[in-house]
Amino acid sequence: MRMAFSSGYLLYLYLPIMILPLFSFNDSYYISFPLQSFTMRWYDELAADPSILAALVNSLEIGLITALLSTALGVLSARPLARYRLRGQASILGIIMLPMVIPELILAVSLLVVLNQASLGIGKWAVILGHMLICYPFAVAILMARFEGFAIELEEASLDLGATPWQTFWRIVFPLVMPGIVASFLLTFTISFDEFLIAFFLSSDEPTLPVYIWGQLRFPKKLPSALALGTLIIVVSFLVAGFAEWLRRRHEASEGLP
């Protein structure tokens, strides 16, 4: 029974994802069985399309900047939240985590309205702002867990041994919370990279990859190369997630905090 459930679940989870690569190598415009012959044509088409490359660059740019900024802000917020008992701690945390439960559609539409009203225009930087809003809570949550597991005695020991507060941060705190920083960076990057709604409303003429793919779906002839693109994204995502997990385990194993 348990076996049946697990295999059913795995099938349900992975079958649709397996369809994507399968048809990306299929020499036909139409996604239907039986399969035609093997081809790399869609990947070639992908490589030849400059607008896809531009969308990819947009996505990477937005993802990296969002990840960097929300992780940096996350470090600054998580450290005091985990270390000290602040006045109104619960409400501060609640406000930080709020964007997690506000529907993205609402966030996207309101951001659009506000930015237009303020005549600030939209584009990549507007997407970055929107993405930071939804990434920051994840960064804080991940980093708080890291800072909470960190013994304050280690910082005191470092000061006691003659290191200044600044040296203590770089020699002790930073190396020890590094796995959390990496995890937060990778997660926020992935969230931004995958995000559609906010990017759809705010990216204007600088579409991200998901927005671009969505646009391509209107043209049946472009569908197979969208599948090829999807396949590449899946492969890269698996590699990044696997790397993050490997990093986390390696650090956990080598740490042995008392």
Binding site: A151, E153, L154, E156, A157, S158, L159, D160, L161, G162, A163, T164, P165, I172, L176, E255, G256, L257, P258
Partner: peptide, 16 residues
């Protein structure tokens, strides 16, 4: 960090 004393902590606080 400028005092002429050093401490052995209860949980040792060895840098992991």
């Amino acid at each position: 960090y400028r005092r002429p004393c050093n401490m052995v902590f209860q949980n040792y606080a060895i840098f992991p």
